[in-house]
Design a protein around this nucleic acid. Structure first.
Lengths: 198, 198
DNA sequence: TACGATTGTGAATCAGGATTCACGCCCCCG
DNA sequence: CGGGGGCGTGAATCCTGATTCACAATCGTA
């Protein structure tokens, strides 16, 4: 109903918040900054969201959904007889590529602490990420393509490992920045080996 | 000089801060809370540190130094002819065991965002952690014990992977908590495989 | 013992950021 | 054309937490 009329400003606020988080994390996304970037006054935010937290939760959900969908569809587009190691490689490479394109945002989604309500969302999505990968690992083990292993643990380690390799040493404006391709290649090897597919 | 007389309260403040961070992260370590736990008034903190930030930096340094030393000495205590994969396994197992004993603290040291000045410290120590591991990987490759690989990337992924596997799925009071031994075992396998030592 | 330095106190002050609110504007329905 | 409702404004207000400061208490030393 009113949703359509609401959309423009509402959407602009969400978009502004995402941009700010991408640039400087949650800390940079103050109500005033968000409103300013969206071209409205601070008070306007409260016409569309009951609180800043609510805005964050909504943003969080939409971004995470998009990521999970991207990883899933990457896996689904592979040939049905692709080896499980290849599937896992692809899923995590998708994760990594997308995270790398938006390292600060990725960090905010995966790890950066926030208000408890937003954090609760994170927990749910983190499980989705890890579950997606754990499933692949279990399937690979069941099919005899991968050695026996603690699938949940490995899945967490893979998500964390890729995340750290991406946002950790790279995000601060430290020394030589490896190219994206180089990192992705390295991570593919990492994933393949970590699941025992040499 | 005065250092000796200063020590008691100063040390108590540092200790209190560490405890609070261990329990609830930086957020829980407010000046009032730290002072209260140390059994002094808030203002007293400023007799010993020029700011809260300074206290954090000092705490950060001392804890990180201890960790790095523990990992190093674990490696040094191994027989000189131990395989590099075993060395890496040991170093990371040490890291993991210690992190697991204090997951919240580990998280605070490795990843939790803080004021820029403290964050600068983190950067330095993070490099020490990763460098320690990268060195081992490079040595293993040079000795022909490990396959060719991007040592820095793998080191970061290992630190991140172990960190996530430890604090990520475990710290929130989620479902079934795997035992510490189980996690360490899983991580040893993970490390060994990730560096290509089957 | 008197004095200055060092510590400790905790209420007051400050600062940054979220939230509210009294006030216009405009559009749509009657 | 008049009135109500949704939208936007931005200064005022509130909250939370760091920092200051005027005032003891204590201790070492002259």
């Amino acid at each position: 109903m009113t949703e359509d009329l609401l959309a423009p400003t509402r959407a602009r606020l969400l978009h502004a918040a995402q941009e700010l988080i991408e640039e400087g994390g949650y800390g940079a996304a103050s109500v005033v900054a968000i409103a300013e970037r969206a071209g409205v006054a601070a008070g306007t935010l409260y016409r569309h969201f009951s609180s800043k937290e609510e805005l964050f939760v909504e943003l969080f959900r939409s971004v995470c959904d998009r990521e999970v969908r991207a990883m899933q569809s990457a896996a689904e587009q592979m040939s049905p007889e692709a080896a499980y190691a290849d599937r896992l490689e692809t899923v995590l490479a998708t994760f990594a590529e997308r995270a790398m394109r938006r390292p600060r945002l990725a960090w905010a989604l995966i790890a950066e602490p926030v208000d408890p309500r937003v954090d609760a969302e994170r927990l749910a999505y983190r499980e989705q990420y890890a579950e997606l990968i754990a499933e692949g690992v279990r399937a690979g083990v069941a099919a005899g393509q991968l050695p026996e292993q603690n699938a949940e643990l490995i899945a967490a380690a893979l998500v964390g490992g890729c995340g750290e390799a991406l946002v950790g040493p790279l995000s601060p404006l430290a020394g030589t920045r490896p190219s994206s391709a180089e990192v992705i290649t390295g991570l593919r090897t990492f994933v393949r080996r970590a699941v025992g597919a040499g």
